[in-house]
Design a protein around this nucleic acid. Structure first.
Length: 152
DNA sequence: GCCAACGTTGGC
DNA sequence: GCCAACGTTGGC
C-alpha cells in the first residue's frame, strides 16, 4: 500500500464538501500537470491512503484522510467546453488527463499546518515543505506518514 | 493582492 | 533543442 498527499483549495473543494458527496466519494478531476497525472495513471492503487491538504487558504495544512477507491481513468472534464478545466488538446480517443476516485475516511482531530510541518527535522526531505514545490499530488513515504500522524 | 517559483508554449 | 515569454500555483 502506498501513501499520498493531494491538495485542494477549500474555496473550490474542501474536506467538508467531500463528506457531503454521495458515498462520500469524489472523482479527483481537473489536475492538469503531467507529473501528477502520471501518478494517478500509473501508481495510485485501490486501498492507498491519502492526506487531504487544504491549500491557498488561511490555515494551509493537512485536514484529513481519504482512500483511493478507483484507479486512474480518463478525466472527461477536459472534454467539456463549459468546464473550467476544459483542454482542447485532450482528444476523447486518446485522453490526455486522468483522475482517480477518492473516498472520505476521517478528519484529523486538528489541522496539521504547513507552518508546523516545516519546523520538523524529520520532514526535511518531504516534498511538501521543499521551497517552491507546486505539485498538487505527491507521494508520502511510510515513515513520513507515521510521523505526521503522530503529531495529531 | 503580491510575487517567487516553476511548468508550458512556441519562435527560432 | 534553446530559452524568453507567459500563465499558474500557492504561501504570505
Amino acid at each position: 500500500m502506498n501513501y499520498w498527499l493531494m491538495k485542494s483549495e477549500p474555496d473550490s473543494f474542501s474536506i467538508d464538501d467531500l463528506i457531503s458527496r454521495p458515498a462520500q466519494t469524489e472523482p479527483w478531476d481537473g489536475v492538469r500537470n503531467y507529473q501528477a497525472r502520471n501518478m494517478m495513471r500509473d501508481d495510485m492503487k485501490v486501498g492507498d491512503r491519502v492526506f487531504f491538504y487544504h491549500s491557498n487558504c488561511a490555515e494551509a495544512g493537512i485536514v484529513g484522510i481519504m482512500d483511493v477507491v478507483k484507479e486512474g481513468y480518463p478525466d472527461c472534464s477536459a472534454f467539456d467546453v463549459n468546464d473550467h478545466h476544459f483542454d482542447a488538446k485532450s482528444d476523447p480517443n486518446t485522453p490526455r488527463w486522468m483522475r482517480v476516485d477518492v473516498k472520505y475516511v476521517r478528519k484529523l482531530s486538528r489541522t496539521i499546518t504547513l507552518k508546523e510541518l516545516k519546523t520538523k527535522a524529520e520532514l526535511t526531505d518531504f516534498t511538501l515543505v521543499r521551497n517552491g514545490n507546486r505539485l498538487s499530488i505527491m507521494p508520502v513515504n511510510q515513515v513520513q506518514w507515521d510521523f505526521i500522524l503522530s503529531l495529531e
